[in-house]
């Protein structure tokens, strides 16, 4: 094979794979914290949008439009580069001299968590609305409060129905952590870029990178299908 003899997969593996393995740690960290943030934010937005108070609904709706109308990559860059500048500028106007900076991973987690939280809030809201109103009423007439009924009776039922779609968001989020490379998070893509530019083993490096994502996302999506199946059969 002429092609293979010109490529150096073994050499690339030797140098790149240990780096990718430490990159896995970053990806997992970003995904876990990003997803937790997204779930909490998604719940807060979903419940807020079901509120009887119009101003709360209005503000949340505007926020959703803002986030859904701009790309995740732009949001990440904005949080990492622009927000600190704005804060410093603002402090300067007030007469303080500051040098606020956001650690790149923190910025990445916040950005991805907010973005996913907004999309997930719609799924969560729809699932809460899809629970039969009779469930809330049954809880209320037993003397439970409005929030007890929501959190203990309605939301547990709602969550059962959305575990599959939350799972899909999780898999998407793992892949989207590659965008964090643009805010200097040393995850898989950034490591691969650096490696390729130093060694010129471009084909080998990016092939390994693609494989690395597959190694995470394929088992993860099967795990989610399995959980979904278990939930259905129970």
């Amino acid at each position: 094979m002429n092609l293979l003899s010109q490529l150096h997969f073994a050499k690339a593996a030797e140098l790149l794979i240990p780096s990718l393995l430490s990159g896995f740690g970053v990806v997992i960290k970003a995904t876990i914290f990003g997803f937790l943030l997204a779930i909490v934010l998604g719940m807060v937005i979903a419940i807020g949008r079901l509120s009887q108070l119009k101003p709360i609904r209005g503000v949340l709706y505007l926020f959703l439009e803002l986030i859904r109308g701009t790309p995740l990559l732009v949001q990440l860059v904005y949080i990492y580069y622009v927000v600190p500048l704005l804060l410093n500028l603002l402090a300067g106007i007030l007469g303080f001299k500051t040098d606020v900076q956001i650690a790149s991973l923190t910025a990445g987690i916040i950005g991805i968590g907010i973005n996913y939280g907004c999309y997930m809030s719609e799924v969560i809201r729809a699932s809460i609305l899809s629970v039969d109103k009779g469930q809330t009423e049954a809880a209320l007439v037993l003397g439970l409060g409005k929030y007890e009924a929501l959190f203990r009776i309605v939301i547990p039922q709602a969550f059962r129905s959305i575990i599959p779609s939350l799972g899909n968001y999780l898999v998407m989020m793992v892949k989207d952590t590659s965008l964090l490379a643009y805010v200097a998070v040393n995850e898989l893509l950034l490591r691969t870029q650096n490696f390729a530019s130093q060694t010129f083993l471009t084909i080998e490096a990016y092939t390994y990178l693609a494989l690395a994502y597959l190694i995470i996302s394929i088992p993860l999506s099967h795990l989610i299908k399995y959980v979904e199946y278990k939930l259905k059969t129970n």
């Binding site: 039969d132 009779g134 469930q135 009423e137 049954a138 037993l142 039922q157 059962r160």
Partner: peptide, 13 residues
């Protein structure tokens, strides 16, 4: 004052 509904509304979980 308890209530019983036409559609039972038991908690399925």
């Amino acid at each position: 004052v308890g209530m019983v509904f036409q559609k039972f509304n038991l908690f399925p979980m």
